[in-house]
Design a protein around this nucleic acid. Structure first.
Lengths: 254, 254
DNA sequence: GTAGTCAGATTGTCCGGACATATGGATTGA
DNA sequence: TCAATCCATATGTCCGGACAATCTGACTAC
């Protein structure tokens, strides 16, 4: 008598292209992720065992494991020894990337607008010098931007960057986000140290964001490092809490 | 003429115990992490190549790679094809875990105190029912706590939990954090969806936290899921922004 | 002197196999 | 009936090897 449970990957069209330069494990993980996203692999359903999956695809078990592991790291799958690998039941979306406000807004379908208020070289204050790891009073870029959504101000972004890293063109800054410019300049972002808090708006801050003096503001400070450990950006941002909040998904590392 | 550069791992005392039940790759990664933490492996220094390292330890290259990879995932190491693996230069500390306020405070050396204000069963409101995935008006635990540091209120924590999961003892809640109780009860936390914002304090909120009405408050909402996808906790927290802010480190996933 | 080329070094990907270990259900025993 | 034991199953760990892709630096040609 056959088991009533049917392995859902059997019906799934999985295939790899060995002539492609894309790694095999990556091809597989992308197909599995698409199937989960699309609902073909339903939450809670068990993936067929690794051995058989490898045999069916003509791959080795380590390759299949590598594909599955990458999805486990993303929080989409859970493995249980002696049981199998199953699709996580909850709605995992973004495991908290180093997010750019610009990308966030764009993903939400709100075409963000940016107004560059300041784009100059200034001597580094003690605070900025410490954050960026440069000498005090040495020249650093200072960029101040106002981010708007639906024509209303949403956030005030003040950033400092060490000189020589990137060419800061005002037009480009208004057309896209700072992180995209940095990535386009060949900088590989590695990590960032963030601090999120709140405080009452000063009169100056309130004027910029069309709020009342003393209104609550959401604040974020961030230092971003590239993979050599250099600080490549220091930012102090203020957000209107009625228009923006930080939303993200965390994964518990096992 | 010998190269002036010396492979720092040569001086390092690395060894593995094959009789131990601890996986070999884990033993190695822990020793490397300790060496980085301790400063024996200085930032920017190159790890010896994987082949030689494996030979010296009597391990296979996949095992050594697995150890190194786990540290790369933690953001402590960076690999470059054709170059080698080097210690990241910046100060990586916490890659943002699913943090418990209690643990955070304890790690900061502030012995946190907790006062349980409410610990009862209540019918689930529409909001709570939606977050926890239970029927509206069905019974759920409601726990309200005041977290104090140095005798001053720091945060007000309001949590809802589905029934039957855990025994909520008021004394235990005052002695430790909620997450520890859940882990101790055999619940494996998997992920959480968080939202951080700010708003002005209502009179009731201000009274609880010894603030003025209208003062800015930092707010956090969170739904936590276990590895079966069940929502195991929904919380609405308010923090005094002069006493607390969210600090964490993000890693860019390559 | 400068640019292009080439070789060595190192990680990235992949294979096929072996044994260990935890899980859950079926079998067996009291 | 209920509890303990056994066993099939699936993942976890580990091995040794092979070739490809990429980076660096030195060499060569112009």
């Amino acid at each position: 008598m056959p088991k009533p449970e049917v392995d859902p990957t059997v019906q799934l069209e999985l295939s790899v292209d060995r002539s492609s330069p894309v790694p095999l494990y990556f091809q597989l993980s992308q197909q599995l992720e698409a199937a989960i996203e699309h609902g073909t692999l339903t939450p809670g359903s068990l993936l067929g065992n690794e051995i058989e999956l490898a045999a069916r695809l003509g791959l080795s078990r380590p390759t299949v494991r590598q594909a599955i592991q990458s999805l486990v790291d993303k929080g989409l799958l859970v493995r249980r020894r002696g049981v199998g690998t199953q699709v996580v039941h909850s709605q995992v979306k973004r495991p908290l990337e180093l997010s750019s406000l610009y990308d966030d807004l764009e993903a939400a379908g709100q075409r963000p607008a940016t107004k560059v208020l300041v784009n100059t070289l200034v001597p580094a204050s003690a605070e900025v010098a410490a954050a960026l790891g440069v000498a005090e009073d040495s020249d650093v870029h200072r960029v101040e931007r106002l981010r708007l959504a639906h024509g209303e101000p949403m956030a005030h972004l003040c950033n400092f960057l060490p000189p020589g890293l990137i060419d800061l063109d005002t037009d480009q800054l208004e057309a896209t986000g700072l992180y995209r410019l940095m990535r386009a300049a060949g900088i590989t972002l590695h990590s960032a140290r963030q601090s999120i808090g709140a405080r009452a708006a000063t009169t100056e801050e309130a004027d910029r964001l069309v709020e009342e003096t003393g209104a609550p503001l959401l604040t974020m400070q961030r230092v971003t490092f590239d993979d050599t450990g250099r600080a490549v950006e220091y930012g102090t941002h203020t957000y209107r809490p009625t228009r923006y909040s930080f939303e993200f998904q965390l994964l518990v590392r096992p």
